[in-house]
């Protein structure tokens, strides 16, 4: 499956979805003007990946900021992973937060409560 790579901008995150390299990551800032337009290719890619995923998928979310509209789309992404778990695949969501960013740590715990996928919470310093 062809990898999806999107460069980060000042209002949208970097996206790496690469089955061959086993790399699945969204990182940076997310407050694009049109969240649906930005995340649609990500959702489309994951829907395709869902059909024949790796035995284990580690999905890294390392966001320094996201607005509420983005959080809705992050939810949509996580729901695809939830379906994959229901279909018998192994998935881990690794949620990265800056040590000083308690709101980001909280947000990770909140997503974990809402989604039936194992979470790992990771703290980074800078």
């Amino acid at each position: 499956m062809k990898a999806l790579r999107i460069e980060q901008t000042d209002d949208s995150p970097q996206v790496i979805l690469d089955q061959e390299d086993k790399q699945f990551e969204i990182s940076g800032k997310s407050l694009p003007e049109d969240v649906v337009e930005f995340y649609q290719p990500v959702l489309d890619w994951l829907r395709e990946y869902q059909k024949e995923p790796l035995a284990k998928t580690e999905f890294n979310l390392k966001l320094s900021y996201f607005n509420t509209a983005s959080s809705k789309l992050i939810m949509d992404i996580l729901l695809i992973f939830e379906e994959m778990v229901e279909e018998g695949h192994k998935v881990v969501i690794r949620w990265h937060s800056l040590r000083s960013d308690e709101d980001m740590q909280e947000a990770g715990k909140e997503f974990e409560e809402m989604i039936n996928v194992p979470f790992e919470h990771t703290i980074y310093e800078k």
Binding site: V36, T68, A69, S71, K72
Partner: peptide
């Protein structure tokens, strides 16, 4: 709202 809401035609999630 996260579970049930949808992105409006204006692009918001009703969460702000």
């Amino acid at each position: 709202q996260m579970r049930e809401g949808i992105i409006s035609p204006q692009g918001g999630a009703g969460l702000g």
